[in-house]
């Protein structure tokens, strides 16, 4: 009896799925060129005003719902769409930290007749490249933010992790005192962004300044502040003299500074650095805590990502890449950055 019921319900379910799906797609775009990596921009960038009247339906997909940088990206994306592309219908959602949700959402977009997707897609893999290629073949335009696209069909707007870290490393190589003893927060292992940043630090800071000793280092799962706090607390037990906190992002550096302050150590003489230029990092620089950071401008990243998507939807470009430059933040220019965060509503 139960089995018959199950069969009937399954049949009804399948029937309703068939009834609801759209038939056919709007112009499907065949992609002849099989480029393996996106090119740097050469052609002049078209201005947003040109696309003011474009009508489209897009989905904005973040990595998860709680990561601060993701939030900055999504907030900025929404702002850009509302201000510069008022005829665009959009929906914001997230992957819940599970990359396998990408294919579900892409399928849904194709079925529901979306024109484009702005996605913070995380690491590349053979599988995900295929997903984007399939979706694009169905007519969906894809623009990735905060990630490099290597599938040959999607545009991307990203900050060069290696480049940013190199900038930071060079600055720290300049200002770290002689024979400094530092601790090193390496971010999560296996994460491409983290690994690129670590490589840049190794090459341009530690190799360039062989007198600087890394007395303790470790990975920090999920870039999480609480994990960095635990590490730093234990390191403070072991080492009395810590001259510098080298970190591949702001949050972990701030964790280190907090711990040292609570342990009663003098942090004004500690050299610390991070990357991303998030609100808490900027506030700390202003307050004399964090020494320096590199702005990963999510405003620009989202803006360009949306622009590329609109260009793709309008048929003007096939797929392109935009690299966002990092900007060194020091006590001299930090007030500008704080103002930007205030404008975004992230700092009240």
């Amino acid at each position: 009896m139960k089995r018959i019921l199950a069969l009937v319900l399954t049949a009804l379910f399948c029937a309703s799925l068939c009834a609801c799906s759209d038939t056919g797609q709007a112009d499907s775009q065949t992609d002849d060129s099989a480029q393996s990596s996106a090119d740097a921009p050469e052609a002049p960038v078209q201005k947003a005003e040109d696309y003011h009247d474009v009508k489209a339906k897009i989905m904005v997909i973040g990595k998860n719902s709680t990561d601060p940088f993701t939030n900055w990206l999504l907030t900025a994306a929404e702002k850009v769409i509302k201000e510069s592309y008022p005829n665009v219908e959009y929906v914001v959602t997230n992957l819940n930290d599970d990359p396998s949700n990408i294919v579900t959402l892409l399928d849904q977009c194709v079925l529901d007749g979306y024109d484009g997707v702005l996605i913070q897609k995380g690491s590349n893999s053979i599988n995900s490249d295929e997903w984007y290629q399939n979706a694009t073949a169905e007519g969906l335009k894809i623009s990735a933010i905060n990630a490099i696209a290597k599938d040959g069909v999607a545009s991307c707007s990203y900050a060069d992790d290696y480049g940013m870290a190199q900038m930071m490393a060079a600055h720290m190589a300049d200002i770290l005192p002689e024979n400094a003893q530092v601790v090193f927060f390496k971010g999560p292992d296996g994460n491409q962004a983290a690994m690129d940043r670590v490589d840049a630090y190794q090459e341009h800071l530690f190799k360039a300044r062989p007198d600087v000793t890394v007395i303790a280092e470790n990975f920090v799962e999920g870039w999480k502040k609480e994990n960095a706090i635990t590490l730093m607390e234990d390191w403070c037990q072991k080492y009395d003299k810590i001259d510098g906190i080298i970190s591949v992002n702001d949050t972990m550096a701030l964790a280190g500074l907090d711990v040292m302050k609570n342990a009663g150590r003098d942090i004004s003489s500690v050299y610390s650095c991070g990357i991303d230029g998030l609100a808490d990092g900027c506030l700390s620089i202003e307050a004399g805590g964090l020494t320096a950071s590199i702005l990963q401008n999510a405003d620009v990243m989202s803006e360009e990502g949306v622009r590329l998507l609109m260009q793709m939807i309008n048929g003007d470009i096939d797929h392109e890449a935009y690299i966002v430059d990092g900007v060194l933040i020091t006590p001299d220019n930090v007030s500008e950055m704080i103002q930007m965060h205030r404008d975004n509503g992230i700092i009240k």
Binding site: P68, N71, N262, A279, D280, L283, I346, I347
Partner: peptide
């Protein structure tokens, strides 16, 4: 978890005044 996100739009609260003193 969902409620946290709705409550604060996923944005952290960076300026918490003396709250940290409870731990330090």
């Amino acid at each position: 978890r969902g409620a946290v996100y709705v409550y604060c739009k996923g944005t952290p609260i960076y300026q918490v005044g003396d709250y940290g003193k409870i731990s330090s």
